[in-house]
Every structure is written in structure tokens, then in C-alpha cells.
Amino acid sequence: MARIDDFTATTINERDISLGDYAGQVRLIVNTASKCGFTPQYQGLEALHEQLGPRGLAVLGFPCNQFGAQEPGDAAEIANFCSLTYDVAFPLFAKVEVNGPGTHPLFAYLKHEAKGLLGSERIKWNFTKFLVDRAGRVVDRFAPTTKPEALRGRIEALL
């Protein structure tokens, strides 16, 4: 059976890394987009990264263009937007698909481990968030409407 630390992902700078590099940390994994109504959540995600990162939180952003084509740019455009607009310092990864036949294996795993409403595995929109504990267990899934700051207490309980 797969574990979260068994997956690899490509960073926004085109480097393959193991999610095992984050073993022992609480992880907040988010599918993101630069031109979405929820895009201002980058600010809250960065605040969590800055405030809770030293205590063991890793915020991991995975751009996705599957919802309303709201992440149309290439890797350089995405990285520049996130840096210049929201001063994002948490790790960003290459664009992924989170639904359908091209679903990144990490997201297939996350969706299976933490189903959505009525047991659905499908991700409904950008900024769906998955919370993973220090042992690598997917412990919760949060809707795009859930603001990052609302997760602080839940994250702190795992730290």
C-alpha cells in the first residue's frame, strides 16, 4: 500500500523530489491557481508557512489548470506571479492534473484517503486542501471555501 512519502513530484523549477523529503512534518497540500476567486488564499497559506513552518508545517502548492483554465501560465509565469503578488516562499510544484485520466498519483492517493462530500473523490475546484500528519497519514480534506487561517487550530493540534 502506498504512503504519502512514497510519491515524487516535480518542483516549479523542474526538479523531481520525493515527498519523503517532508517526512516528519505536518503537510498542507493545496491545488492552486493564479486567476481564481480563491487566489488571495495564497496570502493565508504564506502566513501559515511563515508562522508554523518553524514548528514543522510544510505548505505545498500544486498549480492546476483544470478549473476554468485559471492557471494558464507556464512555470516561470506562475512562480513570478506567486512571488511578486503574494511573496510566496513555500514550495511550489509543476502544474498537475487533479481529476481525470491524467491525475497526478499524489492527488489520486489524497482523494482516496480523504473523500469529499458524499464520499466523492473528485476535487471540485482550486484551493482544495489536504492535511497530512507527521506520520504521513491524510487526516482531513478542506473545501476551497475554507480559508487557510481557519485551519490554524487543526494544524497546531498536529504539530
Rank of each mutant, 00 (worst) to 15 (best):
M1W: 14
R3Q: 11
R3C: 10
I4N: 05
D5H: 12
D5A: 13
D5E: 13
T11M: 08
I12A: 08
E14S: 12
R15M: 13
R15C: 10
R15I: 12
R15S: 14
D16F: 08
I17Y: 04
S18N: 07
S18V: 07
L19H: 00
L19T: 00
D21K: 07
Y22H: 06
Y22P: 02
A23P: 03
A23E: 05
A23F: 05
Q25S: 09
V26W: 03
R27S: 05
I29N: 03
A33P: 03
S34K: 04
S34M: 04
S34C: 09
K35E: 09
F38S: 01
F38D: 00
T39W: 02
T39Q: 03
T39E: 03
Y42S: 04
Y42F: 13
Q43H: 14
G44Q: 03
L45Q: 02
L45G: 00
E46I: 00
A47W: 09
L48Q: 01
L48T: 00
L48G: 00
G53Y: 08
P54E: 09
G56T: 04
L57R: 00
A58T: 02
L60M: 07
L60N: 01
L60Q: 02
G61W: 00
F62C: 10
F62V: 11
F62T: 09
P63A: 06
C64V: 10
C64A: 11
C64G: 06
C64P: 05
Q66F: 01
A69H: 15
A69V: 13
A69M: 15
P72I: 13
D74M: 09
D74Y: 08
A75L: 04
A75E: 08
A76P: 05
E77M: 11
N80W: 13
N80A: 15
N80C: 13
F81N: 02
F81M: 07
C82L: 07
L84F: 15
L84W: 14
T85V: 15
Y86D: 05
D87H: 14
A89D: 10
A89Q: 15
A89T: 14
F90Q: 02
F93P: 03
A94V: 08
K95P: 00
K95I: 04
E97Y: 10
V98E: 01
V98I: 12
N99S: 09
G100A: 10
P101Q: 11
T103G: 13
H104E: 07
P105M: 07
L106I: 11
L106G: 03
F107T: 06
F107P: 02
F107C: 05
A108P: 04
H112I: 15
E113F: 07
G116T: 09
L117R: 15
G119M: 05
S120P: 04
I123P: 00
I123G: 02
I123S: 02
W125N: 06
F127L: 08
T128M: 03
L131W: 02
V132F: 01
V132H: 02
V132A: 02
D133V: 03
R134S: 11
G136C: 06
R137N: 11
V139Q: 06
F142R: 13
F142Q: 11
F142T: 10
A143F: 10
A143H: 14
A143C: 12
T145E: 13
T146C: 11
T146F: 08
T146H: 08
K147F: 09
P148D: 05
P148H: 08
A150P: 09
G153C: 13
R154P: 09
I155F: 03
E156D: 09
A157D: 14
L159H: 07
